[in-house]
Design a binder for these strands. Structure first.
Length: 152
DNA sequence: GCCAACGTTGGC
DNA sequence: GCCAACGTTGGC
């Protein structure tokens, strides 16, 4: 089993939104970055654990835990001209973008803020806090996972 | 709204 | 293959 961190803007999909979905499950659509896609397509397996991170919001930080419940399949928003995530270079015949389904596990008792994560020495080298990192899907080591969850 | 940092595009 | 221009991300 692997560990991941996934970023979501709470105005798009917050941890509470995820919890409120039927079965607490949502497709992780809209990823349009090759590296993030490759992680989802090649490495994410059912049961993998996810740190759910809120970005572009008043209090950026890790807010909860989710897990992978369906492995990679084509992201239909790429084929939909009306979608904000439409990609004309993609088609059902030539799938470019894939997504996984994630399921709510639990909320953390509090938000582990970005500043706190940056200040934690045990998280030196953490992909999230590396300068200029913009990946929305990134791997987390077991040690990093334990450290973050341990800060709850 | 600003800006740093990065990815992508396209001319050559 | 290089690199400038442009678009996006995301914190502040």
């Amino acid at each position: 089993m692997k560990y991941w961190l996934m970023k979501s803007e709470p105005s798009e999909l917050s941890i509470d939104d995820l919890k409120a979905r039927p079965r607490g499950t949502a497709p992780w659509d809209g990823v349009r970055n090759y590296q993030a896609r490759n992680y989802m397509r090649d490495d994410m397996k059912k049961g993998d654990q996810i740190l759910f991170y809120h970005s572009s919001c008043p209090e950026p930080g890790v807010v909860g835990i989710a897990q992978v419940v369906r492995e990679a399949y084509p992201d239909p928003t790429a084929f939909d001209p009306k979608s904000h995530y439409y990609d004309p270079k993609s088609s059902p015949d030539k799938v470019q973008w894939m997504m996984v389904d994630v399921k709510f596990v639990r909320k953390l008792k509090r938000v582990i803020g970005l500043q706190e994560l940056k200040a934690e020495r045990k998280l030196d080298g953490f992909a999230l806090t590396r300068r200029g990192n913009r990946l929305s899907v990134m791997p987390v080591t077991k040690q990093q996972w334990d450290t973050v969850v341990g800060m709850e």
